[in-house]
Nucleic acid binder design. Structure first.
Lengths: 158, 158
DNA sequence: GTGTCTGCAAAACATTTGCAAATGC
DNA sequence: GCATTTGCAAATGTTTTGCAGACAC
């Protein structure tokens, strides 16, 4: 469902800080839970639940899909983790402090870009003026064409 | 799910016009295909493939899911039909030449709104200036909070 | 010890695919 | 007549659910 912005986003520089935050909430730090957290730190950017479950291609023992989903949901509830939907395909997950960004996604080549929310302030204001909607590009990104594909599109039409 | 449609419905061609367009492309007009087309005309707005397959709750005989999907894809290829993704849930289909083309979707209450693309020209320009992306809100809508939910959000926080 | 988490299995859900039989043109 | 299209059945990919046993605290 909709991501619930509960607590202010914690700065989470390392695994142990997140683990400590989990424990502080009275939740248990199991091997599976720790591995989900470590996978998110190890990943270069957005990762699917399936990638996390299979150990990110590393030599780690796999964690069951259901446990990964349960953990991601729990961690998202704590505000430590977020997910985003880039077009079709599975939801993609990342640490909350890394994902406090707005996303753009190219419908043609699949490239995505994460930007500071402030960069899109003017766009959000324009949407608001035109429609009254308060746009959030965090969970469902802006879809469209990246600069390269937009240029190719123009070349093709001319 | 409250559907807020503040969209002027331009004169859409009738069923026979679409049927004629299908035949003109050398495709066959079967009972199932005709029913898919009629369902799209009968629907008040966006409908799922599942709703079309089950006859829109009417007394019509059901059409097989696979046939509905195949037909929607074919008709979309002809430019007669298109689909959008409102958040999670199934894709939603509508006739291509119904007036409104850009969608906004409320992540909280699920309401959606279809607007003239020109209304969002300024927003698209702002995205372009800030990021170089050419935003298209047609297939994946703008997600955020509708005016009502945005107001409730403010009230709740204050 | 107690209540949370885990892994496994199975279901839910939207969609796609394979194929023999039906049918529009 | 013949290619297109259908309905059925089964597979796909993603996520959820139910549950008995394992384990953190």
């Amino acid at each position: 469902m909709t991501a619930t912005r509960t607590s202010p986003t914690l700065a989470a520089p390392d695994v142990e800080t997140v683990v400590a935050a989990v424990r502080a909430r009275g939740l248990r730090v199991t091997a599976a839970r720790r591995q989900v957290i470590e996978s998110l730190f190890a990943a270069p950017g957005l990762v699917s639940a399936e990638q996390i479950a299979s150990g990110l291609g590393g030599a780690r023992p796999p964690v069951d899909d259901a446990s990964v989903y349960a953990n991601l949901e729990t961690l998202e509830g704590l505000g430590l983790v977020r997910h985003v939907h880039l077009g079709h395909g599975p939801g993609l997950w990342t640490l909350a402090d890394r994902a406090c960004r707005d996303f753009l996604h190219c419908e043609r080549c699949g490239a995505w870009r994460a930007v500071e929310p402030s960069l899109l302030a003017e766009a959000r204001a324009a949407v608001r003026r035109a429609t009254g909607y308060q746009a959030r590009f965090t969970h469902f990104p802006i879809a469209g064409l990246c600069p390269d594909c937009a240029r190719a599109d123009l070349d093709h039409e001319s």
